[in-house]
């Protein structure tokens, strides 16, 4: 895959003094998390994770706390050293990179946003946002200009000389985003950026980020424990459980076709109205005559239900050339809604 900006292959992380031994034993015998803990006193953080993120997409990693999602994302800029496996970022191999190259990669190619903002309280917003440039030795005037631009993009014009504790939580996280964007990196790592915010602000920031992301086309790795958020934000979603990636797919694939009970459990409460498309639930025509009500294959469930409001006769699905390809009965639509 040539357009993969981030690619991890067979990534393992085992914490503990005897991690190397444990790694060998796990590969040879396929030990479980508990067996690794009991035999080697090691903790299995990430288990054989492979995924790739295409340039410009938002890739969500979803999992409960302790599922290893934060650990996994820290491998991308090697804040955590992998025990085994390969990491490729923007065409460079990260897991074997030397220290100085790694620092350059972190400062120039990857921006990171943290769950608890992690803004430095002794620095002004300008100094916070310009930090990545400061450690690269960029002169003060240029740093300030970059910080100004980044803060303006996050609608924080005029706050550059204030300190983080003078801002509300939502504003602080916008500073966190501005800091990640200041060096104009190709890649954003977002570790539960909106989890600590109240729902209304979270929604606002999600929207703001989505619209920003639409014209900036940054490759984004987005961590969340909230499937709703993952579905709203993600082009692709990876679901993690106990250090393992259990399923990777588009939001629709995850919702309509959960791979196991664990994922199915998550998906249960998710509204399908804006997710399931006509294509997924239609039945083949099998010689039946098309009905006058027609929708395209990529129309969402909500619109299909609207079509049943007046009368309950089946709806015909047409492809882009207006050729009928299938039928949806009201029963099928209701079933899809119920999940």
């Amino acid at each position: 895959m040539s357009d993969a900006q981030i690619e991890c292959r067979d990534l393992w992380k085992i914490y503990g003094k005897r991690s190397d031994e444990a790694m060998k034993a796990v590969l040879a015998e396929g030990l479980s998390k508990e067996e690794v803990r009991d035999r080697f006193d090691c903790v299995l953080g990430v288990r054989n994770a492979s995924f790739s993120v295409r340039k410009g997409e938002i890739f969500c990693i979803m999992g409960l706390s302790g599922s290893g999602k934060s650990t996994l994302v820290r491998h991308v800029n090697r804040l955590i050293e992998p025990t085994s496996g390969e990491i490729h970022v923007a065409g460079k191999r990260v897991d074997t990179m030397i220290e100085s190259d790694l620092r350059q990669l972190r400062a120039e190619t990857i921006g990171m946003v943290f769950q608890h903002m992690a803004l430095w309280p002794h620095r002004t917003l300008g100094e916070n946002v310009g930090f990545g440039l400061e450690v690269r030795g960029v002169p003060l005037a240029d740093r300030r200009k970059a910080a100004e631009t980044a803060l303006e993009a996050m609608e924080l014009r005029g706050w550059i000389d204030h300190y983080p504790d003078q801002l509300s939580g939502g504003m602080q996280q916008r500073v966190g985003l501005a800091r990640a964007l200041a060096a104009d990196p190709e890649i954003l790592l977002m570790d539960e950026p909106f989890s600590a915010l109240d729902p209304l602000i979270r929604r606002q920031l999600q929207d703001q980020f989505l619209s920003l992301s639409e014209h900036m086309h940054k490759t984004t790795l987005f961590i969340t424990h909230d499937l709703d958020e993952a579905i709203r934000m993600g082009d692709h979603i990876a679901i993690m459980n106990d250090g393992e990636i259990v399923q990777i797919g588009t939001p629709e694939e995850i919702v309509t076709n959960p791979v196991d009970d664990y994922v199915a459990d998550f998906v249960k409460g998710i509204s399908r109205v804006g997710l399931v498309r006509a294509e997924t639930i239609m039945e083949p025509l099998d010689g039946r005559a098309p009905t006058p009500k027609q929708v395209r294959t990529d129309v969402e469930l909500g619109e299909i239900i609207d079509a049943f409001m007046e009368d309950q006769s089946p709806v015909t699905v047409t492809n882009t050339e207006d050729v009928p390809v299938g039928l949806i009965t009201i029963t099928a639509a209701l079933k899809a809604l119920r999940g």
């Binding site: 972190r106 990171m112 430095w120 450690v135």
Partner: peptide, 23 residues
């Protein structure tokens, strides 16, 4: 996470110490 953030933006150990930890 203050130290981690510094490292994530490319600071060396020395820079992390002088710019974040000591202050």
């Amino acid at each position: 996470d203050m130290v981690e953030a510094a490292r994530a933006f490319g600071a060396s150990n020395r820079q992390t110490l002088y710019k974040v930890e000591l202050p």
